[in-house]
Design a protein around this nucleic acid. Structure first.
Length: 425
RNA sequence: GUGAAUGUAGCUCAACUGGUAGAGCCCUGGACUGUGGAUCCAGUUGUUGUGGGUUCGAGCCCCAUCAUUCACCCCA
């Protein structure tokens, strides 16, 4: 029988790895909580239209990377390629702006994009993201960037750099866009094929192109920052001042534009040198027009998302905090096994982690299992212990000939003794 | 969607210029009849990704196909 294999770009996180994932996730949620952000959980499946309207039909994500299919009634559904669209949909649908002026949300979970997999990029990948809705001032941008940086710090991520830019607002972007297009037209011949197309669809993206010819042209292009209106300029300066006050190092990159259409004003990226070609760890920006564009009220917002798979890549190698100690029970014979059952149940109910080799082989093989499992203590029960109403407690970490290595403990004192010496859960 | 590299035991990898597949780890048992880690001994595991072709003979050469990886594109 031919075994069925996992879908391309998907992967299993086996128990060996999942402990690290759980640790990372718990770190992230506790930092979010410290900033006053609460978790929003939305469905993984949405109407395709939601993403077309938010991310933009011209973007690669929508044009060719979505996992879309028809439902039984013919409606078009899509596995979410990012988290902001769903969060905003939920925000609008639940009229959240009427119950609170400012909302602080975070989300964590799988996203789907039908791309060619490579290092740090999978078709099912995981993001943590945060959205701050209802505040248009620079304080919101600063808080969010601070949160992003603190999340990275809480995981011990080092060697990341923060880049910042502003894309302007509906008041100043069109004029900038025109001046950019005018400039690019004069150098059209030096642009790559893609960029010649972008000239019409999304000229800002030309600035971000890595092709050598385009990069040279982009170097001489008018800066996004020079095209800002006074309000956008002030906003940007205030954001920078806030970052300075927090001593958050950053670099202004006037060539950084984001891949999603909904961004306005501030955009930012957290980059790493350790990830090969996929160097973006986290990225985000302000999206003042999105809520309205999705049929909601005029609510300004900022948000970001971080790639958890990429963060795990950077984390592998660093040491995780130790989990709870494991207690291993080894028995000899049917009677001893039966006697052990209630005892084990009691220990577990007190919060101890207790396991055994249920194959119940030779004592030696059970001891080997205990060792492989990394047990802190082995509880040994055989005829002698049954007779005496005791348990032999063996400390697997003590030196072979030390006094503490092995002791005989009356059954009714066992829980007390272990509770004092073992990290429980 | 494009390009390149790589597919040998559960895992990590050997096998000279084509001559009929091996090691370490892991697992199981034993040396040590109720005691792990070190050592030693024994045992199990393969349609060499798949399908064709060349050849007396293919893990090795050729073609196709599938998969993985890395890069491009794009993105977290």
């Amino acid at each position: 029988m031919e075994p069925i294999r996992i879908i391309r770009g998907m992967r299993d996180i086996l128990p060996e790895q999942s402990a690290a994932w759980r640790w990372m996730e718990s770190q992230l949620s506790s930092v979010c909580a410290r900033f006053g952000y609460a978790e929003i959980r939305t469905p993984i499946l949405e109407q395709s239209e939601l993403f077309a309207r938010s991310i933009g039909t011209e973007t690669d994500i929508v044009a060719k990377e979505m996992y879309s299919f028809s439902d039984r009634d013919g409606s078009q559904l899509t596995l979410r390629p990012e988290g902001t669209a769903s969060a905003v949909r939920a925000y609008i649908e639940n009229h959240v702006e009427r119950s609170e002026p400012v909302s602080r949300w975070y989300y964590m979970g799988p996203m789907f994009r039908h791309e060619r997999p490579q290092k740090g990029r999978y078709r099912q990948f995981h993001q943590v993201g945060a959205e701050l809705l209802g505040a248009e001032g620079p304080a919101a941008d600063v808080e969010l960037i601070d949160l992003m940086v603190e999340l990275a710090a809480s995981l011990g991520l080092s060697g990341c750099s923060l880049e910042l830019n502003s894309l302007g607002c509906p008041a100043c972007r069109p004029a900038y866009r025109e001046s950019l297009v005018a400039y690019l037209r004069t150098r059209e011949d030096s642009l790559c094929e893609d960029c010649q197309r972008r000239l019409a669809t999304n000229p800002l993206r030309v600035l971000d192109c890595k092709q050598e010819g385009c990069a040279r042209v982009a170097d001489g292009a008018p800066h996004t920052l020079d095209g800002l209106c006074a309000a956008c300029r002030d906003h940007f300066d205030a954001v920078r001042a806030g970052l300075e006050a927090l001593s958050i190092a950053h670099r202004v990159n006037h060539r950084m534009v984001r891949g999603l259409d909904y961004y306005t004003r501030t955009t930012f990226e957290l980059l790493s040198g350790e990830l090969g070609a996929q160097n973006a760890v986290a990225a985000g920006g302000r999206y003042d027009g999105l809520v309205e564009a999705l049929g909601g009220p005029e609510v300004p917002a900022v948000g970001f998302a971080a790639g958890l798979d990429r963060i795990m890549l950077m984390l592998s190698g660093s040491r995780l905090p130790a989990g709870p100690d494991l207690v291993f029970v080894a028995t000899r014979g049917q009677a001893a096994w039966e006697a052990s059952l209630g005892m084990v149940q009691g220990l577990r109910r007190r919060g101890l982690c207790v396991t055994s080799d249920v194959r119940l082989g030779s004592l030696k093989s059970q001891m080997k299992r205990a060792d492989k499992a990394g047990a802190r203590f082995v509880l040994l029960i055989g005829d002698e212990e049954l007779e005496a109403g005791t348990v032999t407690v063996k400390d697997m970490t003590a030196a072979t000939d030390s006094a503490a290595k092995q002791r005989s403990v009356p059954l009714d004192e066992l829980a007390e003794l272990l509770a004092g010496e073992v990290r429980s859960r």
